[in-house]
Structure formats: C-alpha cells, structure tokens
C-alpha cells in the first residue's frame, strides 16, 4: 500500500493547488449565478385580472364561487367569490385565502388551506397532521371538485389548481379527506346548489372590494396556465352511488349527508337537471340524517393573515456551530498528523 504514497514533489504541489482551487471556483460560480439571478428579478406591475369580491357580486353567470370545507377542524364551509378569468389557484389565494404546497411538488399541490378570518389565518391541516414534505396520502388530502353553471353534480377536478380555469357562474369546492380511484368514495356531502350563487344580478351594492384586500399579483409573462377554459371538460361518468364506505382516518362528526336537497339552507330557484340526482339525495345512505349538514358561511374578502418571515439569528447560530464543529475536526486531523 505504501508504495502509492511515494510521489514526486511537483505532482504534490500541483495536486494541492487543484484540490484547493476547485471548490473555491465552484463556490464563486454559484455565488455569481445567484447574484445574477436575483438581479434579473423582474416584477411586472400589470393590474390584477382576478380579484376577490363580496359574495353578493357572484351571480349565476358571472364570477366564480369558492367553497372550502373546514368541518374537519370544527369550522363551517366557507364561501367566497372571485372574478373570472382566474385559475383555481388564484381563486384560492386572494381575499385572505392562502395555501401551502408540498416540499416535493411545489406550491401547485395544495397541501394546506387557510383563511385569515378562520382561526386567525391558521392553515389546515396543521403541521402536526401533515408535514407537507411529500405528497399527502390519498386518505387525507384536499380534493378539488367543480360544478359547472347549472349542473348539480360535482366533478372531480382532472386538472391541478394552477391549470384549471373556473367558468363564470361555476363553483369550486375543496374538501378534506380521502378518495378512491373510482371516485365513489369521499364525494362531497353538500350539493353545488347549496353553495352557488342564485341571484341573477349582483346584490349588496357595487362596492368594490375593501381597499386593504390583497390580491394575488398576476403571473409573470409566459406562464402556462393550462388549456383554455372553453375546452369541454371530460364528461367522465359520475357514479351516483351513495357514500357507503368512507375510509375515515379520524371521526368526522359534521360530515354527514343531509337527508334531502331541500334541507339546504338556500333553496335552489334555478331548475337543476332532475336526472342529476345528487348523491346526497339517496336517503338510504347509512350515515345520512344523523346530523344536519355543515353550515355554509360566507367569507368576505379580507386582508392576508400577517406573515412573519422570522429571524435570521438561528441561521447565524448554525453558521457559527458549523464553523466550530468543522473547524474542530480539521484542527484535530491536522494535529493528529503532526504528532504521528
């Protein structure tokens, strides 16, 4: 073995130089690239296209209604209104709404949802329930449902929130729980008619959104927001079986099916296709009629929940610790060699 250690002095010097310089060059390059990237940061100031509106501004043929079911955390189904054109993601990130993605999939995968008017803007599920690092399990995630204008059945979204563009007069619903591949389990227990706007013209005055309302900035130029909304959504067969078995990881006392559509708080004046019997209309659902349906509460456009970007002190402390520990290792190795 030791014969490999006999080296020419010139070679040794060369080796030392290259070993020393290569990481240094790499670090310099990385820093330079980062500086360039930050310097190239461009913020466009195009007026916002999508905006949050009071719920009265949504009508049967304008605006998109957003509904989020917080019943797993003892909350109501919150209902908001936003202007179109928009994306499902934008709708869910304006007027006090905020989402968190996963570390693995980025912000496009909705892992947490929060509204500044519900429990102080805390986002659910909490970090203790799901750390949002990897893709959440199919048994507990936010599933995304659409109802087109006039339709009274939910369609499981075939597109992600960033790609889907709600049609004017449509309803977007986010429910937390599990679904199966066939779409027979974990369907919403409310009907689109319970959530959608039924007024044909805006009510509650034409007052615009409050001034402090923060609206999502427009996407940078060149953003692909997916196929055009006019594309007919795939009419995949929606099985109208009752929710017989739900893979419930935890008890959901409030998530019960209402006995009939007439139990909804807002009777539907619009004639909905009668063939589209909502799944909740089946009275033979085993868990049906145990409790009244989760109440629907209107969520007014609000300011974003305060965001604290934290302190940089822990990073500095870590830097000092890394230097201390790493320096101790280098020092010990050198000393060991010297005394050997």
């Amino acid at each position: 073995m030791s014969r490999h250690d006999e080296r020419h002095p010139v070679i040794r010097r060369n080796e030392r130089r290259s070993v020393l310089r290569r990481p240094a060059r790499a670090v310099l390059g990385a820093v330079g690239a980062l500086a360039l990237a930050v310097g190239a940061q461009a913020v466009t100031t195009v007026p916002a296209a999508a905006a949050p509106r009071p719920i009265g501004q949504c009508t049967t043929r304008s605006g998109a209604v957003l509904a989020v079911d917080f019943s797993d955390w003892g909350g109501p189904i919150l209902r908001s209104c936003g202007t179109t054109p928009t994306t499902g993601y934008e709708l869910l990130n304006q007027g006090g709404w905020r989402t968190t993605g996963t570390g693995h999939d980025g912000p496009a995968f909705i892992c947490r949802i929060g509204y500044s008017g519900f429990k102080g803007g805390k986002q659910f599920p909490t970090a203790a329930q799901d750390d949002c690092v990897l893709t959440p399990p199919a048994t507990a995630y936010w599933s995304y449902w659409h109802a087109d204008p006039g339709a009274n059945t939910w369609k499981y979204s075939q597109l992600g929130a960033m790609l889907y563009k709600p049609k004017p007069g449509s309803v977007d619903l986010w429910i937390f729980g599990g679904t199966n591949v066939e779409g027979t389990q974990g369907r919403p227990t409310v009907t689109p008619d319970q959530l959608r706007a039924h007024n044909t013209r805006p009510t509650g005055g034409r007052a615009p959104a409050p001034h402090e309302t923060k609206t999502a900035k427009p996407l940078p130029p060149g953003t692909d927001t997916g196929p055009a909304p006019e594309r007919p959504a795939p009419e995949h067969p929606v099985p109208e079986r009752p929710v017989t078995e739900r893979p419930a990881p935890k008890p959901k006392p409030k998530r019960t099916t209402p006995p009939s559509p007439s139990a909804s708080k807002k009777p539907s004046p619009s004639p909905s296709p009668s063939t589209d019997a909502s799944p909740s209309a089946d009275a033979d659902a085993p868990k049906a009629a145990a409790k009244p349906s989760t109440e629907v509460v209107d969520a007014a456009p609000a300011a974003d929940a305060a965001h604290d970007s934290g302190s940089y002190v822990p990073a500095v402390v870590t830097g000092a610790l890394v230097l201390l520990v790493g320096g101790a290792g280098v020092h010990a190795a050198r000393r060991r060699r010297r005394t050997e």
């Binding site: 940061q41 912000p107 496009a108 900035k217 940078p220 130029p221």
Partner: peptide, 20 residues
C-alpha cells in the same frame, strides 16, 4: 412546478408546450 403570484420570480426558461 408552477409559479404563484406570491413567489419571487427569478427568471423564465423558454416554454415548450405539451399536448392537452
């Protein structure tokens, strides 16, 4: 993986469209 309006935009790569 998509950019959100709250993100800090750094740069844009040429976009290659994919079929529907």
């Amino acid at each position: 993986s998509g950019i959100t309006p709250h993100d800090h935009f750094l740069f844009s790569l040429p976009h290659i469209p994919t079929p529907d």
